[in-house]
Amino acid sequence: MAYTVRRPNLTFWEKIYLPNIIAGLAITFKHLKKMLKGETHVVMQYPEEKWDAHLPEYYRGAPTLVKDEHGRERCVSCQLCEFICPPRAIKITPGSIPSESKFAKVEKFPEAFDIDMSRCIYCGLCEEVCPEQAIFLRKDYAVTGESRADMVHHKEKLYELGGTMPDLVHKWNPEK
């Protein structure tokens, strides 16, 4: 439906623009002056200044994999994160845990777990969907590489970034 926008009634001085242009110039000049005098501090000088200490608890940096307090890979390669990941950044090759392993009870583990960080959009859906509390978005945000291959985080890298998270899932622990 057509909607008529009411135009403001301008005075003569407003109509000839010039005073307003000068007022605008004054505003921008004020900003310029304050910047030059170092009174405004908005931008951080990145590599020297960092915001790391202020990152909130819920900050979503690079997704990582974690191990539990027994050193078990939490991920059982259920591939739900691979399914949910909107840009399809995750690629998992599932495998079975050999029966002689101390974690044979878990049966399944990821043989390979790759997250393509050039695709990841840090949405956190993988963390949310994981039924085993195995994948977490940590605070690493400076993910760089010199080639596409560099940007793929393999399993080792993911565990290195993720570390250990104790006491989240108990169902696989040996019974007391």
Binding site: H31, L32, K34, M35, L36, V42, V43
Partner: peptide, 10 residues
């Protein structure tokens, strides 16, 4: 530079 300073950038 000027545009940056006007916009409170560097």
């Amino acid at each position: 530079r000027v545009s940056a300073l006007i916009q409170d950038r560097l």
